[in-house]
Amino acid sequence: MNAALEIVGLSRRFGGLVATNDVSLRLERGARHALIGPNGAGKTTLINLLSGVLAPSAGRILLDGTDITALRPDARVHRGLVRTFQINQLFADLTPLTTVGLAVSRRLGLDRQFWRRLGSKGEIVDECVAILERFDLLGVMNERVGALPYGRQRLLEIALAIACGPRVLLLDEPAAGVPEGEREGILAGVAALPVEVSVLLIEHDMDLVFRFAQRISVLVNGSVLMQGSPAEVAADARVREVYLGEEVHG
């Protein structure tokens, strides 16, 4: 059976700097896979390569067995590969409801409709409500996104990705910068992801990583240092040295 996402020998050079060095990775269906590594290990570069924002220097990306290496970012989304952003990339002037509404419209192929009103189709509204409810955003669905508390915006990041109907979801540090009081909401949001979605989580928050992941890959200087179960990774001496040892997690 094909892996949900398979990365084969992926590399990316910026001049003399090798940001991603021959990375291979298999994401099984329904996986909860975490990618960890110290700052500058090339985690976000890898996400940018997978989502098509950057083109790789070498290597291939297979989504459910199909090579998508040459596809544009929007075409990858159509095939079910969706990402979130480490730094919020939202539509500040819209509301959570219209934000999710337009993503759902896009997924159902209604985004070129120019004569019907957004939300005139009941199924779109129903789905928006279900998604907003899952991420505890119903109470703020008519607020301006730019005025929402940071934690809510982080949740909307994930909700918006879910609205695109992902088969593979790339979560880029969902808990980054979230104040302590709002962290539980993010953890609940991540835990509430649909089981059929395969997730690759990039995260610094070790608490979240070990709560969430069934499998962990450790990225150091653009290369995969090791992969294994959380217990194996926690016990690995090299990992402790390069990562856990250096960066004491608060």
């Binding site: 989502s51 924002v53 544009r72 970012p73 929007d74 989304v77 159509h78 969706v82 990402r83 952003f85 990339q89 939202l90 539509f91 500040a92 002037d93 819209l94 337009l102 993503a103 896009r106 997924r107 985004d111 918006l160 990705a161 609205a163 695109c164």
Partner: peptide, 11 residues
């Protein structure tokens, strides 16, 4: 509002 995100939701 955000061309990067617009592409990331498949537009």
């Amino acid at each position: 509002g955000n061309a990067l995100r617009a592409a990331a939701i498949g537009l």
